[in-house]
Simulated assay, not measured.
Amino acid sequence: MGEIVEDSLVASLKGGFIVSCQALEEEPLYGAEVMAAMAAAAEEGGAVAIRANTPVDIASIKRKCKLPVIGLFKKNYPGSEVYITPTMREIREIAEAGADLLAFDATRQPRPNGETLEAFVAAIRRAYPRLRLVADVSTFEEGVAAMALGIDLVSTTLSGYTPYSPQQERPDIALVARLAELGRTPVLAEGRIWTPEECVACLRSGAHAVVVGTAITRPQEITKRFVRAIRGALQADRA
């Protein structure tokens, strides 16, 4: 196993907990000030970084919170399923908003305008050589390909969100372990992590840090889980 060489920012995340503060336009907590308050609460709770969507939210969070921000910008383009920071336009906007790290879709799905992942990463490096890059992947092969491009961090964010990756309710800890075993690039565990126990399991499997969003910052989804559990228990009691 090779030795991972880390810079100071990447090293500062090691063994830490990252909170994803995101809300879509149709959700009750949508709004930059709300997300900034979420980020401040996460900082107070001991998070080591924030993951945030849109330039407006990133800028607001940077004003209120001292933690490094993993920035992304979700956009849909015709003919492509890639939506997490899909083009250089989104990269530029989140970089200018103050993101410390740039997260983007690094899956093998077709990119907007037929651009290759290799060309996209090269363009980012030319424009923003000092910013760290986070590759969101869905499979082991995608993670390996991202590592070959010299990405700073590989995240399992999209496992289960591409049609060819494992469709499961629990976090893809096996993917975390396989990528971490390579010893090449630090791995972020993200996706369907609901409990502290699952966080610890990810870290023990080799994750550099763990990212959790919905279980903390989307109360409507948290409420749904409680409601489903209650209804299921009541139905079972009546049976």
Rank of each mutant, 00 (worst) to 15 (best):
99 A>E: 07
27 E>Y: 02
205 S>W: 00
200 V>A: 11
10 V>D: 11
51 R>N: 08
29 L>M: 09
232 G>S: 12
170 R>S: 14
209 A>Y: 05
43 E>I: 02
228 R>A: 10
211 V>R: 02
33 E>R: 13
30 Y>W: 15
221 E>Y: 10
161 Y>E: 11
200 V>P: 00
209 A>K: 06
20 S>W: 05
89 R>Y: 06
127 A>G: 00
175 L>C: 14
219 P>Q: 04
35 M>S: 01
19 V>I: 15
150 G>Y: 11
50 I>S: 04
233 A>Y: 08
17 F>H: 09
214 T>I: 10
16 G>M: 02
226 F>P: 02
223 T>M: 06
185 T>A: 10
10 V>M: 12
170 R>I: 13
23 A>R: 06
115 E>P: 13
168 Q>D: 04
43 E>N: 04
162 T>L: 05
51 R>L: 08
155 S>Y: 05
123 A>Y: 07
133 L>W: 13
39 A>C: 05
139 T>V: 07
204 R>S: 10
194 W>C: 05
197 E>N: 00
51 R>Y: 07
79 G>V: 05
145 A>N: 07
156 T>Y: 12
159 S>I: 04
184 R>V: 14
59 A>N: 04
172 D>S: 06
235 Q>G: 14
41 A>H: 04
226 F>R: 07
224 K>A: 14
37 A>P: 07
160 G>I: 09
229 A>S: 12
110 P>Y: 11
185 T>R: 13
147 M>E: 14
143 G>D: 02
72 L>T: 01
216 I>L: 15
146 A>C: 06
32 A>P: 01
158 L>N: 07
163 P>V: 12
204 R>Q: 15
23 A>I: 04
49 A>V: 03
76 N>C: 08
54 T>L: 03
66 K>C: 10
24 L>C: 03
83 Y>F: 15
82 V>C: 03
155 S>G: 15
102 L>D: 03
67 L>A: 07
222 I>T: 04
189 A>W: 11
52 A>K: 01
91 I>T: 11
108 R>H: 15
19 V>S: 13
162 T>D: 05
122 A>N: 02
114 G>A: 08
229 A>I: 01
233 A>M: 01
194 W>F: 14
18 I>P: 00
172 D>E: 05
16 G>Q: 06
228 R>N: 14
145 A>D: 13
76 N>Q: 13
98 G>F: 12
86 P>W: 06
61 I>W: 02
163 P>Y: 10
219 P>N: 06
157 T>S: 10
113 N>S: 12
226 F>E: 03
189 A>R: 12
208 H>R: 08
134 V>S: 00
162 T>C: 03
56 V>C: 04
63 R>H: 01
103 A>L: 02
186 P>S: 10
18 I>S: 08
167 Q>E: 13
111 R>C: 03
199 C>G: 13
15 G>K: 02
216 I>E: 08
171 P>L: 09
207 A>T: 12
18 I>H: 08
21 C>L: 06
236 A>G: 01
173 I>R: 12
162 T>M: 01
148 A>F: 01
148 A>V: 00
204 R>Y: 12
192 R>F: 13
150 G>S: 07
85 T>Y: 02
68 P>K: 09
99 A>Q: 04
39 A>L: 05
64 K>R: 15
114 G>C: 10
236 A>I: 05
52 A>L: 01
231 R>N: 06
216 I>M: 08
98 G>N: 11
80 S>W: 08
203 L>I: 14
34 V>I: 15
195 T>S: 14
181 E>A: 14
145 A>W: 06
28 P>W: 09
101 L>G: 02
